[in-house]
Structure formats: C-alpha cells, structure tokens
C-alpha cells in the first residue's frame, strides 16, 4: 500500500506520483459513486473526476483536494440523475444524495484521530471484527450483505426464521459499528494521506 503522496509533485505534472494518487483514490471514489449511480456510470464519473483534477491541479491546494474530489463526484452523479428520462421521485433522490455527501464530510471532519492512523488492511479488519461474532450471526450477516441472498433464502439455508435472521444481522451491524469505527472512518478518509501534504 502507498504510504504517502506528494500533492506538490502532482502539481508539477509528475505522472508517477499521479499514478499513486489514482491507485489510492480510485477504489474509494468508485465505492462512493456507486452509492449514487449504477456501476458502469460510476466508472465514467470517476474517470471524469480524475481528468478534472489533473486539469485543475495547479489551482488546488492540498487542503482542498478532498473537498474537490467529493464535490466532483457528487456533481457528476447528480448530473446523471438529472438526465435520467422521467423521474417522479427526483427530489427525494437529490435530497438523499446531497445529505449523503454532507454526512460523509461530517463523519470525516468530526474525527480528529485520523492524524494518528496508519492504513490498515481493510478486509483483514472486517474479518477480525466478524470473528468476534457468534458464528451463526456472522454467517447471516455475510450471506445478506455479500452473497445477495434474501432473508427468506438465508432462513431456509440456516434453518431459522426470517425474524432470527434479522436479529443476527442487527447484532452484526451493532458489533461492526463499534469494532470497525476507526476503519469505517478510515474508509471515508479520502485523506489518510493528507497529513503528508502541505
């Protein structure tokens, strides 16, 4: 994993540094964009964000890069939503989209500990957090979140009631919320690297 990125190098047009920047931000920006639009659209939106960043790199100070990327992602996704043919619930969609951005920014801004964090292996952290759960509980969580099964299918497979599935999932979310607090914040931390900048 990349340990630090020098924004000033990118400002000078260093393609190698830009590549590191891309490697580190692409997965996160894709994940955020996919919250708004389908994946194939997200791919284009994210490409455009990097193009705009590259074009405007000279005018951006390190402190503004995070906000710039977020704003570009949001605008790109909202543009797509606006262009979708007929959308009765457009206002709701936009409300949720805008609030999501605010929430993401608030989550990261509120948190000061990022200064002391180093990058952790995300998937390992998830695994560790899940290991702390009772086995059936983490199984129900895994099947519902990552295996695309419905509660009914999980209930049949695990031979329990759908209600119990819900209980298991709720419990898993509670545990993950606590256990992954740092990691979840880190996940959003488009600025794991920002302390090296400036």
């Amino acid at each position: 994993m990349v340990s630090h990125i020098d924004i000033h190098k990118i400002k000078r047009g260093d393609a190698k540094e830009f590549r590191l920047f891309f490697e580190s931000f692409y997965p996160r920006l894709m994940t955020v964009a996919c919250r708004y639009v389908p994946e194939f659209v997200a791919e284009d939106v994210v490409q455009n964000v990097f193009v705009r960043y590259w074009e405007q790199k000279q005018t951006l100070e390190p402190d503004n890069v995070k906000a710039f990327l977020f704003k570009c992602i949001q605008n790109g996704c909202l543009d797509y939503l606006k262009h979708r043919a007929v959308m009765d619930d457009y206002e709701h969609e936009v409300l949720v989209a805008e609030e999501r951005l605010n929430w993401l920014l608030a989550q990261t801004d509120r948190n000061e500990i990022w200064n002391d964090l180093v990058m952790k292996d995300l998937s390992a952290s998830v695994k560790r957090a899940l290991e702390k759960l009772p086995q059936r509980c983490s199984e129900a969580f895994r099947l519902s979140f990552y295996e695309d099964l419905t509660y009914k299918e999980i209930a049949e497979r695990m031979n329990i009631s759908p209600r119990t599935v819900e209980e298991h999932v709720q419990k898993a979310i509670r545990v993950l919320r606590v256990g992954l607090k740092d990691v979840l914040i880190l996940w959003l931390l488009l600025f794991r690297l920002f302390r090296f900048w400036g």
Partner: peptide, 17 residues
C-alpha cells in the same frame, strides 16, 4: 441508510482495489 451503505461498501471497495 448511510451506515449500511458504508458496511456494504467495504466489500465493494475491495473489489475496486
């Protein structure tokens, strides 16, 4: 919703990495 999205996104991000 946003919290669930984040947890769901963990796996997704792994795929995008």
């Amino acid at each position: 919703l946003f919290e669930l999205e984040q947890i769901y996104g963990l796996k997704q991000q792994e795929r995008f990495s």
